[in-house]
Amino acid sequence: MPSLKSHFVSFVLRHSRKKAFSSPQNLRRWIAAARKTEDHHPPASLYQRFNIEAHMVDGFPVYEIAPRAGERKRILYLHGGAYVFEITPYHWHLIADMADRLGYAVTVPIYPIAPEHDFHAMFGMVGEVYRRMLDETEPDDIIFMGDSAGGNMAVVLTMMAAEKGLALPSRHVLISPGLDMSLANPEVFEAEGKDPWLGIAGGLEAIRMYSAGIDRTDWHISPLYGNLSVLPKTLLLTGSRDMLSPDNLIFAKKARAAGVEIDVIYEEGMFHVWPLIDMPESRRARQRMAAFLSSEKAADQGKSEAVSWSVKASSSDPFKTGLASM
């Protein structure tokens, strides 16, 4: 049963953030308002806990959280925000929690966002970040982690790297990823009404802003239609009140058919990117993410407890949500 905290957060989202996605006009107003207050810097408390350095790639900052002594593994974290909103403290606190639990280095690119920039600028920058990571870190020690739009970017970046013949990351952790922007799945329309966060009208406007005219069925925008066989072992987290869930479940099925080892956490009653928000369900999800990443043994033990998409998909209508400023 969903916690009281999750019900409260859903209520707040439905009466605040969902407005951003209710129309193209509202999304543009929220973007304009966000630009006045957004701050990509890590919260001051993180500097007290970690050694954090920053450098520039293509004119945009990249933050590096140093690893624990002797640890070689490294996470590339790609934040969500519908491609139009900046990283938030919610993202930073999740990143810090993963760094605490695992001791891995974490690379956080503050990539260019729309409407000021588009797909080409975004992937030009994060592609360069990844190439530099490969110069410093063995690909078997690299993990891609992303939420929402960042989950989309993690999958697309891996597919683009495969196309260019680059070494690929060892694992993916995808939190409520956006994997199909085509709206070909009619279940998404039904899910929208139950989603306390995202809406189709505003979402389509965000896609228009960042996609640089690329068709929404192209795998660069909707990686569900790309070559899934190149993807690494994956943990995908999605919830029954997330508008993106119907497409997430299709992605999991197609990925498995393509030979990808993929575990799915399908949390009943949960909304978009719930692991970013402090509540019982997010603490449970973070434990699962850490187990998946810490060792093969821990991941295998966690998998036996996972809720299989094939069991849950028939028992409830999956649907999507999205953090307007995440």
Rank of each mutant, 00 (worst) to 15 (best):
K5H: 11
V9F: 15
V9L: 15
S10M: 13
L13C: 12
K18Q: 12
K19M: 08
A20W: 03
F21R: 04
N26L: 09
A33N: 14
A34M: 09
A34F: 08
K36H: 13
S45N: 10
Q48R: 15
R49G: 05
R49H: 15
F50W: 04
A54R: 14
H55M: 06
G59M: 09
P61K: 01
P61T: 08
V62Q: 02
I65C: 05
A66Y: 07
A69S: 15
A69T: 14
E71H: 08
R72S: 15
K73P: 01
R74V: 00
T88S: 15
P89K: 06
H93P: 02
M98W: 07
A99C: 11
R101P: 07
L102I: 00
G103A: 08
G103D: 07
A105N: 04
P109A: 07
I110Q: 02
I110M: 12
H117E: 11
H117N: 12
F119K: 03
H120N: 15
F123E: 04
G124T: 06
Y130F: 14
R131H: 11
R132H: 12
R132G: 08
L134S: 10
E136Q: 13
E138K: 13
D140V: 11
I143S: 00
M145Q: 06
D147I: 08
M153T: 09
M153E: 02
V156N: 03
A167K: 11
I175H: 00
S176W: 07
S182I: 02
S182Q: 08
N185V: 04
E187L: 14
V188M: 09
P196E: 04
G199P: 03
A201N: 10
A201F: 07
G202T: 08
L204C: 09
Y210M: 15
S211H: 01
S211D: 08
I214L: 12
T217C: 10
I221A: 02
S222L: 04
L231V: 02
K233S: 13
L235K: 02
R241W: 10
M243E: 03
M243H: 00
D247Q: 11
D247G: 05
I250D: 13
I250N: 06
A255R: 06
A255V: 04
R256Y: 01
V260D: 01
E261T: 13
D263R: 08
F271M: 14
W274S: 06
S282C: 13
R286S: 07
M289G: 01
A291T: 10
F292Y: 10
L293V: 05
L293I: 06
S295M: 10
K297T: 00
K297G: 11
A298I: 09
V307L: 14
V311H: 12
A313Y: 01
S316E: 12
D317Y: 10
D317F: 11
F319W: 00
A324I: 06
M326V: 00
